[in-house]
Structure formats: C-alpha cells, structure tokens
Design a protein around this nucleic acid. Structure first.
Lengths: 111, 111
DNA sequence: ATCTTATATCGCAAATATACGATAAAGGAA
DNA sequence: TTCCTTTATCGTATATTTGCGATATAAGAT
C-alpha cells in the first residue's frame, strides 16, 4: 500500500513541496517562460513551441493551474492563460526563505 | 507509451526541473531541515524524527544524493549525510534567476 | 566467532505522472 | 444550420514514485 504520507508533514513543507512539484517538469518551466514572454494571453501557441501533443500541454497547464501558478479564463473558443504573479511571488519568497533558513544554520561542511 | 520527453528541453530547464523534483516531497524538505540544524552528520536520527520507515528515509536520502543536494560518506557502521552547500547554492541561485527572468518580462496581468 | 546496531538494497504493492490519440464541447464563420 | 477552429477531457498504455517489510551488509562489541 503506497500510503502517501504527505499529510504527516507541516503545512509549510507540504506547500513548498507542491510548488516544487509544479516546477519539477521541464515542460512546465518552458510553459511559464512562454507565458512570461508574451504580453497577450496565449493558448495554442504553446503547443506550437513545445514538442508535445496538444492534450499533453493542456494537462500540464491544468497542473500549473491547480498549483495556483497560472490563471486561465475562457475567451471564446480559445483559452487564455497567464502567470498568477501574486501566487508566484509568494511561493518564490517562501522558497528563498527556506534556502536562507537552511543556509543560516550550518556553514561548516562536516563530511 | 509514456515516452518521457524530458530530453527535448534545454539542459537548463532539465536541471532546474530535476532540482525542483528533489524538493517536491515534504519528507525531503524535512530531511534537509534536519541536516541543516545539526552540526554533526546525522544518520538514523532522521528516522526517529520523521514518520517514515527506515527504508523509506534511506530511499529519500538516496534521491537527494543523486540530485547532488547532499553528500554521504560511510562512517563505520553508520552513514554520515550533510548538505552539499556548493550544489545547493548553485541551484538556489539558478532558481532565483528563473524567478527574476519570469518576473522581468510581464508585469501587467492580462487575465 | 557470534551478536548487535546501523544502513542499504531487494521485492513487492499501490498511487501518480507522463504522454498520446480520439472525442467532446463551445463558439465563430460560412 | 453546418462547418471549422480551439481547447478540455476521456481512455489507455507505460513509467516513475512512494512506501514498507524482509533481507543483506558491514563494522564494532562481547
């Protein structure tokens, strides 16, 4: 039984892990780059740029949306996605906080 | 066929994704915290602190090691793990670089 | 040599993730 | 209305992750 015990950890750890997970696939990082480079909301342009099928891109977009990193609104027959800067800033700040927290403690390598 | 097409992306994207993946489980974040809080190399203490079986912790440690975030040396019958600060700094810097790169482009939300 | 302790690895089960083609849904164009 | 375009979702196949118990391994203790 693959009892995924993620609940046993702190909320903070779970949130950070979820953010990291959203960024844990190169396609999703590439998607974020595309979204950030355009001032307009993009839809199928991502499909043209990335070497993945339309349905696969759609799935990655869904995961980024669930993670809260992007917003998506329906715009006629097409969809409009863009980065949720507020969530993104919040997460990157928390990430840096983790980094700094780790760094502060132990500077002398012990092995 | 679950052809994992990660190779089709840039090295940078792959590296960042791999780093994010290492941090994509709360147990691994918790392990890094434990390692950073101790000045001595820890081994089984992690098992006592976290709600996971010894074999599971060992597996997470292995993944962190493969990702390059920690070093491990055998010290008699026990193992000694600690954070590889050099790798850690490098990755956190690259991450921040990604964050900043994304932020620079598009400040006006479009949807 | 035998026992104990600490850790890694194996084998397995279940859950998730990745990817794609096919199809559905929704709106614009003819 | 009927087509076309765009995107989401379904179904499916395969790969990877997560987790645990059992076992192997390796070194110190007795």
């Amino acid at each position: 039984m693959a009892n995924h015990k993620k609940e046993s950890f702190t909320h903070r750890e779970q949130d950070l892990a979820a953010f990291a997970k959203a960024l844990s696939h190169p396609a999703r990082i590439a998607i974020l780059k595309v979204l950030s480079q355009k001032n307009e909301c993009i839809c199928g342009e991502i499909v043209e740029v990335l070497p993945l099928a339309q349905s696969t891109i759609s799935q990655h977009l869904k995961e980024l949306k669930i993670a809260g990193l992007i917003d998506g609104t329906v715009d006629g027959p097409r969809s409009c996605y863009c980065i949720n800067w507020k969530a993104f800033e919040k997460f990157s700040a928390e990430f840096n906080s983790l980094f700094n927290n780790l760094k502060i403690r132990n500077e002398k390598a012990c092995c």
